[in-house]
């Protein structure tokens, strides 16, 4: 099994150009995003686009992860229904909780059976982006054998905590520590939140250094230009 240890690159699931370019940056994994990057009225269209992209492009050199919508949004179930059949490496689960993971697991069991895919082959990556998820992070990452790692989304946390994000990231020190400990204890991938200013290479370097020193196995990217820097810090 390949691993998305060092880097995952987020691309909008509704952008044909980004879906086409996604594989050229050499990231370990790519995340085709149906959630944050897609407006509610485009969810149906993006879902179809990602489905077709998975059939069309050669993504064989990387782990393909699809960030679905949460089940509570009303879009998540359809996402799983359509996307799981294309056998992505993993689904990324936003606003993760053990309950939601269990429901998704059921759904995946069913789809895998229908499609004749070996049971348990589609992996899960919970997104830690709520106070609740942070508090129960160890419980979440151990809630399914499909889980191979967790992704800390600090931008998501800001809403729950009412905090101001900074490039230095002092405000997420505790969140980072907590996610790393839970993942490391279970030998899972711990993917750090992306650095949001893709023009600031120096800021990205500092952020990578910090995340690696804290024990993250890798870092998410929001721009292909960030991958080379990330790979210099994580191995």
């Amino acid at each position: 099994m390949r691993q998305y240890r060092k880097s995952i690159l987020f691309v909008s699931g509704n952008s044909p150009k980004m879906l086409q370019d996604a594989p050229v940056f050499g990231s370990d994994g790519i995340v085709l995003d149906l959630e944050e990057a897609v407006a509610p009225e485009e969810k149906d269209s993006a879902r179809l686009l990602v489905k077709e992209a998975l059939r069309f492009f050669d993504y064989s050199d990387m782990d393909v992860i699809v960030r679905i919508n949460s089940l509570s949004s009303g879009f998540g179930e359809k996402d799983i229904e359509l996307i799981a059949r294309e056998r992505p490496f993993a689904l990324m689960v936003p606003k993760a909780s053990a309950e939601q993971i269990a429901q998704i697991e059921n759904k995946l069991d069913q789809v895998e059976k229908e499609e004749g895919i070996p049971a348990g082959s589609i992996k899960l990556i919970p997104v830690i982006e709520t106070a609740y998820a942070l508090q129960y992070v160890h419980q979440i990452v151990t809630s399914s054998p499909r889980i191979t790692g967790a992704f800390l989304n600090a931008e998501g946390l800001t809403a729950d905590f009412g905090m101001q994000r900074t490039k230095e990231g002092e405000e997420i020190l505790y969140a980072r520590s907590r996610v790393v400990v839970a993942c490391r204890a279970e030998k899972l991938n711990a993917i750090d939140t992306p650095f949001m200013d893709s023009d600031d290479y120096e800021g990205l370097e500092k952020d990578c250094y910090k995340a690696r020193n804290m024990g993250f196995t890798g870092k998410a990217a929001i721009d292909g230009r960030q991958i080379d820097t990330i790979h210099r810090f994580f191995s």
Partner: peptide, 11 residues
């Protein structure tokens, strides 16, 4: 360029 693909090619 700031285009990620153009920069990739350049690299």
């Amino acid at each position: 360029t700031k285009d990620p693909v153009g920069l990739r090619i350049a690299k």
